[in-house]
Design a binder for these strands. Sequence first.
RNA 1: GGAGAGAUGGCCGAGUGGCUUAAGGCGCACGCUUGGAAAGCGUGUAUACCGCAAGGUAUCCAGGGUUCGAAUCCCUGUCUCUCCGCCA
Length: 486
Amino acid sequence: MLDLGYVRANLPVVEEKLRARGMDPAVVLGDFAAIDQNRRGGITHLEQLQAERNKKSTQVEALRIQAKAAEPLGLDAVAKFYEQITPLESDVRLLKELIENEEKHTASLIQQLNGILQSVPNLPQDSVPVGKSEQDNRVEKIWDGGEKLTSDGKPDTAYIPAAPSFHALPHWEIGERLGILDFERAAKISGSRFVVHYGQGARLERALANFMLDLHTREHGYTEVLPPYMVNSKSLFGTGNLPKFGEDLFHCDDKGPYTGQPQDNDHWLIPTAEVPVTNLFRDETLDESQLTTSFCAYTPCFRSEAGSYGKDVRGMIRQHQFQKVELVKFCKPEDSNAEHERLTRDAEAVLERLGLPYRRMLLCTGDMGFASAKTYDLEVWLPGQNLYREISSCSNFEAFQARRANIRFRPSGAAQGKAKKSEFVHTLNGSGLAVGRTYLAVLENYQQADGTVRIPEALLPYMNDPSKPRAEWETKIAPQRHTGRS
RNA sequence: GGAGAGAUGGCCGAGUGGCUUAAGGCGCACGCUUGGAAAGCGUGUAUACCGCAAGGUAUCCAGGGUUCGAAUCCCUGUCUCUCCGCCA
């Protein structure tokens, strides 16, 4: 959510940034200015009425006390006070009605304005290239064992990772031949867009997750979090998934259908750990000394994939459930751009240690997510399909989520004696990485001519029994005998 | 699932219809005091919105209701705790 005061004061800038995102400002903003003005007038009027009611109500009390004190003087004396009380009481009754009407009027204006504000996406930073679609995303880096640069130091966009000497297979064929992936039985027990892992394949998934968590917690300074896999709709509102993107989510209807109003007692399956982890600090004011706070979390992610029928139906690319290691940071506003670069590097480190070729893309204005001010996508090379696929998305949300989720911090170094005004933190997150897609990238990049898959060096300790001598360790995934459909 | 007790500021905690402008304490900040510190004393310590400002309004878990007036009374919901039952 953008700051109301900012939008009011910088309407032309907001309109220009919306146009850069490919949206029509007139449609997104509607009658913003007029509604805002009416709303402020309504609030002022309402508060005047309330002040008058409170004043008269207090007068009633004072007169009652006087009437009580006058009791010894006789009924006439008491009656004189009640002559004053009665009209005051009817005044208050009238005011009450006026207040109720004004409240309804103002509430509807506030709701309209909130509705507009909540549906306005974040504004892209100036460094984000203006463009319409993923075609306009900018290649920032190409990596294949090292950075691939042209002679003038720019990313060598003509570079393509070397193809193997044999015909490279897509991961679903590799996985089914090895007996480690089972899409058919997954469809039987759960439906389409699910997969079952067996044996060394199941272990590979777990090894990848442990490898990533160890790297981020031991070397990159993240604190591991294991959050709930269900969240309430208030949390989904905080990260910007609701109200606009509810159709992408799985909703547990145990408390009835979603009303459109964020609740704190309903249940939704998380589409990413970003939601529970970012909302850890919802409605909290942190101390400046707590920033920057960095969390990583390994969770399953559940996505309905509504509207993507027929897209990526083969393999593990697009599943209703996949596992992901997520990186989340809370920081001071002035640090968020530097933290964004750092977080993206932390995600890239996973790919580099696994020896997976990738490129870093800077998303253009038209391809960015709703809540993001700047996003890098990391795309891994898939030789079985001869293309790059998104494996991580690292975004700086600035204060957009913090404003929706009410996450603040109190500056500690403020001038002496001055009240320290709390500010919204900046939030960032990125995949570090999507484990399912890393799994298939390993399968495709490490496939051998004999159909086996070599285990990347970094994963060997995670795939083997460390108490055994290294010479006895398995270095490849061979066909599984007693599992799956091989 | 059954029975009971709760939910008040950063924290503890008082508060049964108007002297609450939320007591008191703790913590925190600043000042006085001191050679320096502690103690002591003093002052200040929520958020949001409207307003140029003075100021005003709202918020005592949430939503309704009663009343001239609700932190306080009534109804509904949520969460927490205790006991019983069931359970990985």
